[in-house]
Simulated assay, not measured.
Amino acid sequence: MTTLFIILIILVSVILAFFVLIQNPKGGGLSSGFAGGSNLMGVQRTGDFLEKGTWTLVIALMVFSLAINILGPSSGSNTGGLSNQIEAPAQAPSLNLNAPAPAQQGAPAKPDSAK
C-alpha cells in the first residue's frame, strides 16, 4: 500500500511540474514585454483548464501525502522507522557538590609572591 502511494506521489509531482511550467505567468516581470502577441482567442480557456488542473493536482498530492503518513507501516506497529533507531540517552554522572574537586594534572601551581 505504501508503494502505491509513493508511486502516486511521484506521478502527481511530475505532472504538476509540467502543468506549472506550461502556464503563462500572470505577473509582469521580464515576460510582460514579450507577451504582447500571445493573447489570441482561446487563451483564457486554456489558462482556466491549467489552473484547475494545478489545483486538483496540488490537492491530490496533499491527500496522498497525508494518506501515506496515516496508513503507513509505522502508524500502528513498531516494525521500523526512526523510533527503533533512537536509543535512550546514557545516564549523566550525578553531581555531588560536597565531594572534593579532583586534582588537576599538569604544571604545578606557582606560589603567590604578591604578599
Rank of each mutant, 00 (worst) to 15 (best):
I70G: 01
E51D: 12
T54L: 06
I68T: 14
N84K: 09
V63E: 06
V43F: 07
A99W: 00
D48T: 14
A103D: 09
L4S: 13
T3H: 08
T46P: 00
A107K: 11
A99F: 08
V58W: 01
L57M: 09
A92D: 04
A99G: 01
G80P: 03
Q23M: 15
P100K: 13
L11K: 06
T79P: 03
L82V: 12
I86T: 05
L50Q: 01
R45T: 11
L50M: 07
P25Y: 09
K110P: 12
G42E: 02
P111F: 00
L97F: 13
F64V: 05
A67Q: 07
G76D: 06
A114N: 15
L21E: 06
N39P: 00
P111L: 00
N84W: 04
L11H: 05
N98K: 13
A88T: 12
V58P: 04
L57V: 05
I10C: 12
N69M: 11
F64M: 08
I15L: 15
I6K: 10
I59M: 07
G27R: 11
A101E: 13
L50D: 03
I6H: 09
F49R: 12
I68R: 05
I10K: 06
I7W: 09
I59E: 06
P111R: 10
G76T: 13
N24Y: 14
K110E: 15
A107T: 14
G29K: 02
Q104M: 07
L95E: 07
D112M: 02
A114R: 15
K110D: 07
N69L: 13
E51V: 07
L4Y: 13
S113R: 15
P73R: 03
S83Y: 04
T79E: 08
L71D: 06
L61P: 01
P102N: 10
S83L: 09
Q23I: 03
F34N: 02
I9H: 11
V12K: 06
V43P: 07
G106E: 00
K52T: 08
T3V: 03
G80V: 02
N24A: 12
L21G: 10
P25H: 03
V14Q: 02
G81D: 10
R45K: 11
G36D: 00
L11N: 04
N78Q: 05
I22K: 14
M41I: 10
G80T: 09
G47N: 15
I68H: 10
P89F: 04
A101T: 14
G106H: 04
L40F: 11
W55N: 14
G36S: 09
T2R: 12
S32D: 05
I10Q: 09
V14A: 13
P102A: 10
L61R: 07
S38R: 14
L50C: 03
I15W: 06
P93A: 00
Q104T: 14
F64Y: 01
A114F: 11
K52P: 01
S13D: 05
I7M: 10
V63Q: 03
E87A: 08
I6S: 08
